[in-house]
Computed example of a mutant assay.
Amino acid sequence: MINLEKPHYDHILLDRLFQNILEDDIPSPGARYPDGDYFQYPEDLSVSGYRICWQLLNDGVDVKRFRFLVLNILLKGGTESVEQRQHFKYVRARFKHLRFACANFDRRHRYPWSLNLVTSLMGHMQDAFKNRQMARTRIFGAILFLTILPAFYALVRFQMRSFLPDSNKNMIAYHQRENAKIDSIVRREKITAHDFHDLRKIISRRVAFNDTFRVLHSSDYLDKISLYLADINGEMGDYHDRLVEKNISKPSSYKEDIFNLDRNISNRIIYLISGNR
């Protein structure tokens, strides 16, 4: 099994990675994809990429403190505290990033089911209290609380540590398969909110991959790619929030409503995946 604790990355690199995560959906109007070929992946990218993402979560989340926060919010059926909302958001961001790391760097290219469950419940609970849905906040909060109790969280920890490194060749093949999925969605005349959600998940995984890559191997080229990806991710995030709000008032709309994908978004995504990118 890969040693995820060592070598240990210093707080400067971990803080830089977390800052990248916080900025990965901020629109950057006018951001352009850089010219030239994509960076060659260094041989250790799979291991070093997963290791730093694991350390970001392991070092940055006090699970006992977070458990208390979840319990506090679910008992109240919500929270208006800026501090509590930020705490919840930051914990969820670290979990999401490790979940993306499992898809990006592990040779199975999938989310461990327990980690995915915990992270998804965080998302549902956050959507609920952001939209002042007391009943849904309590339901998702109660289930989330159970999954971060010591007995179940031990399984989450075990699956997070059960990392199988991938080769650069296989990672490139994985990205090409993801590109094919993106292409099949963005070229449709009409898409559903569910299609849009699937598309955004793939883009988010690519954003997370580049956020990690550029911390480990700093370059202006990778920084420009991140700006381009953040611009797409930010626009898609704003649109997805509106779809979630609509789904709350009309649950059937998420799978039944169809619409045209914004042309600016689709063109930028098509340019992203064109050629060997």
Rank of each mutant, 00 (worst) to 15 (best):
R132C: 07
S120A: 12
R138I: 01
L216I: 06
I148P: 09
I202G: 04
Y221E: 09
F163G: 04
R200H: 09
D223P: 00
P112R: 09
R187E: 07
L121P: 01
R161A: 13
F158E: 12
V186L: 01
F100R: 08
V118P: 02
R205M: 07
T119P: 01
L222C: 10
H124A: 06
K89G: 11
Q176Y: 06
F100Q: 09
Q126P: 02
Y153Q: 09
K169D: 10
N168P: 06
G123L: 07
K130D: 15
I225K: 15
L216P: 04
I191D: 08
V207P: 03
L222N: 12
M160N: 12
F129P: 10
R138F: 04
H97S: 05
Y111I: 04
A103Q: 15
I232P: 00
A128H: 13
D198G: 02
Q176H: 13
R200A: 05
L227Y: 09
A230W: 02
Y221P: 04
F196T: 03
G123F: 09
Q126W: 08
S184R: 11
A230I: 05
L146G: 03
L229G: 03
G123M: 09
T192M: 10
V118G: 02
R110M: 12
A101D: 02
N131H: 14
Y111P: 00
D223H: 04
H109T: 00
T147E: 15
D195F: 02
S219I: 14
I203Q: 05
A101C: 00
P112T: 07
R110K: 15
L144W: 05
H197A: 14
N168E: 09
I232S: 00
L115P: 00
F95M: 14
H194N: 11
L98D: 02
L146H: 10
K169V: 10
T212R: 12
C102R: 13
H175N: 07
D220E: 15
I139T: 11
F152P: 12
I203V: 14
F88C: 14
N116R: 10
K224P: 00
V207A: 08
S219N: 10
H194S: 11
A128E: 08
L115N: 05
M160L: 09
F163K: 00
R187L: 05
R92N: 08
H109I: 03
F152N: 12
M171L: 06
K169R: 15
S120W: 07
R205V: 06
Y221S: 14
T147H: 15
K89D: 06
A135D: 13
S226P: 03
R206N: 06
A135Q: 15
L222P: 00
N116L: 06
H97W: 09
F209P: 03
I172H: 08
R177W: 03
D127C: 14
R138L: 03
Y111F: 04
H87Q: 14
K190I: 07
D231H: 10
F213N: 02
D223W: 02
V215G: 03
R136N: 15
V186H: 01
H194I: 02
H175E: 11
A128I: 09
L121S: 05
L121N: 14
R214I: 08
P112S: 03
K201F: 09
I139K: 15
A93E: 05
K96G: 05
F158R: 10
R205N: 12
S226K: 07
